[in-house]
Amino acid sequence: MIWLTWRQFRTQATVAAGALAVLAIYLVILGNQMRHAYADDIVGCLADACTAARRDFEEAYGVPVALAGALLLGVPALIGVFWGAPLITRELEEKTDRMVWNQSVTRTRWLAVKLTLLTLASMAVTGLYSLLLTWSAGRYDQLAGGRFAAMTFAARNLVPIGYAAFAFLLGATIGLLVRRTLPAMALTLAVFAVVQIVLPITVRQHLMTPVTTTVRLDVEAMGRSDFMGVGPDGARIDGYTMPGAWSLTTTSKLYNADGTPYTAAQTEQCHGSNQQEDMACTAAQNIHFSYTYHPADRYWRFQWTELAVFGGLSLALAAFCLLRIRRYSS
């Protein structure tokens, strides 16, 4: 069975190996370029020049890193569509199932071997790509931050491996149920895309209970915010991000030390011609706001948890396929 699986899979394996080799060369070159640029322009830069150097670095390498990450997000989908969906439907459409499933090897063993080997191959290809991209983009991620950002989190380290296993087994399951290759491929792509969109928006942040704390609005906090203004219901601050954290709060109302809302009249007291003096004046007013987030040290816990979730879903799909094929009628 292993030899037969390899014979049927060798074309896909060769294409995947070739594509991975090309990507590896590109990512090694890109990673070395970023490391040299980081060492030359960012490390040891003077205070006045650091802002411009960081901006130039992000502008130069932001697009290549984003494109490489987007491609990695597409790899599991391609695996599900082109490896998973045709796995069983190809046998059905070519009528070879009547011969293969009536030999000494049972259909359950036939499917178990194929699912095991091709799932491992899917995980290996995606895992190697993820490893290369994580190393290549290391300096960029270090500078830009945002490890919890939806696309960055899903295209680094461990979780792409879980996506690959899930996508392949999802394709195999849909193919087993639909029995036609093209509809199975289309459905696999649609379902996997929905999962990839819904998960970071509605599920990921609830895998662990977030932390809610009170943050004092000092000069550092103002520097980590995008905007501070006054609305009809009082003053607010937008876009504050604790270092390395995953912010779940985008807009926060500002309050005085006694708990009363910070008002427009109070903001006028610190409006002058010097921005640094205005920030120092505002910080002296002892203002605070509520902030909900996931701490930076939870990153690897999120990675392992999400990998476990997709690993569990993959095992459930594999078990369903093995049970279903025992009662399958051509």
Rank of each mutant, 00 (worst) to 15 (best):
E91R: 11
K114N: 10
G74Q: 00
P76S: 07
W110E: 04
G69F: 00
L73S: 08
G127V: 14
A60G: 12
A112V: 07
A112M: 12
R90N: 09
V63E: 01
L117T: 07
G127T: 15
P86H: 01
T96D: 03
V100W: 03
A66I: 06
M123N: 04
L111Y: 06
T89D: 10
A77T: 09
V105A: 09
M99E: 02
S130L: 08
L111N: 07
A112W: 07
W83G: 08
D97H: 06
G80C: 04
L72M: 09
Q103L: 10
L128C: 10
G84Y: 04
G127P: 14
V63T: 10
W110S: 13
E58K: 11
L120H: 04
A66F: 14
L72Q: 08
L72S: 04
I79A: 11
V125K: 02
V105Q: 07
L118I: 11
T106F: 05
W83F: 04
I88D: 02
R109G: 03
L73T: 12
P86R: 00
P76C: 05
A121Y: 05
K95V: 01
R98K: 10
L115D: 09
L111P: 10
E94L: 13
L72E: 05
L118Y: 03
V75L: 15
P64G: 08
W101T: 06
T108S: 10
A68L: 03
S104N: 15
W83E: 01
G69P: 00
L111V: 14
V100E: 02
W101D: 05
A124T: 15
V81E: 00
A68Y: 01
A60Y: 06
L73I: 11
P76H: 09
V125Q: 01
L115E: 09
Y61A: 08
A70Y: 14
I88V: 14
L73F: 10
A66C: 13
L117P: 05
D97S: 09
L87M: 15
L78I: 08
G80P: 03
S130G: 12
G127D: 14
G69V: 02
G74N: 02
T106W: 06
A77S: 03
I79S: 09
A60M: 14
E93M: 03
T126P: 03
R98Y: 03
F82I: 01
R98Q: 12
S122T: 10
A121T: 12
G80W: 04
S130Q: 12
L92Q: 02
L92E: 01
V63P: 00
K95L: 09
R109A: 11
K95E: 11
S104A: 15
W83P: 01
R90D: 05
L87V: 09
A124N: 07
L71A: 15
R98N: 11
L111E: 07
A68K: 01
A112F: 10
G62W: 00
S104T: 15
L72I: 05
Y129I: 05
T126W: 02
W101S: 04
F82A: 07
L111R: 08
R98H: 07
A124Q: 10
R107C: 04
R109T: 12
Y61H: 09
A112Q: 09
W101M: 05
Y129E: 03
D97Y: 00
L87R: 13
D97A: 11
R107N: 11
R90A: 13
G127C: 13
R107D: 08
L72T: 07
I79C: 09
D97V: 04
T116M: 15
P76Y: 08
T119P: 03
E59K: 15
